[in-house]
Design a protein around this nucleic acid. Sequence first.
DNA 1: TGCCCGATTAACT
DNA 2: GTTAATCGGGCAA
Length: 191
Amino acid sequence: MPKRLTRSFFRRSVHEVAPDLIGATLLVGGVGGILVEVEAYRHDDPAAHSFHGPTSRNAVMFGPPGFAYVYRSYGLHWCLNFVCEPKGSASAVLIRALEPTTGLPVMRRRRGMTDPRLLCSGPGRLCEALAITDAQYGLALDEPPFALYARPGEVDVIAGPRIGITKAADKPWRYGLKDSRFLSKPFRTKV
DNA sequence: TGCCCGATTAACT
DNA sequence: GTTAATCGGGCAA
């Protein structure tokens, strides 16, 4: 079994942590798979929830790294982030997609569909499949129900613009597993 | 206090 | 391609 990641893994720049998460395995309550798509958000990034300073929603982003930031998106969906960098820098990695490997029947039931490519390909879909809600807000990522495992070897990581934002939309801070069929959207191949 | 918009998704035309 | 569902945050008044 690959090495277990501890919270010290997150004590680095969000732009080092984010690409290093691609290929790692995330399980929540024993259900999950291989991370194939994430995005980095920095405290000085106008698109980041922490940009305007601490609020009750983003408070965990201003705490120590290695904890879960969960927020409601569009009043409907939950989105999962991993807090990074030294305490107070308020940076986080948005977990956008994973390749389901463990607990497929549970995920199919929660999502109400069977196509494995639609189970966790998108931040809201992923949270529904893994049963992430505000109940996981602020929990440590190296303790149950979370379990993270380092990727077994090197992988091809590709970068591109982030999705669904209008501010700082030109920054290539979306990272993905090259040629994965489980991305929420394909990365535009360079011409 | 009220208004607009957003790190989305599924179901439409 | 467009749109409804649905609600907290930021900002103007």
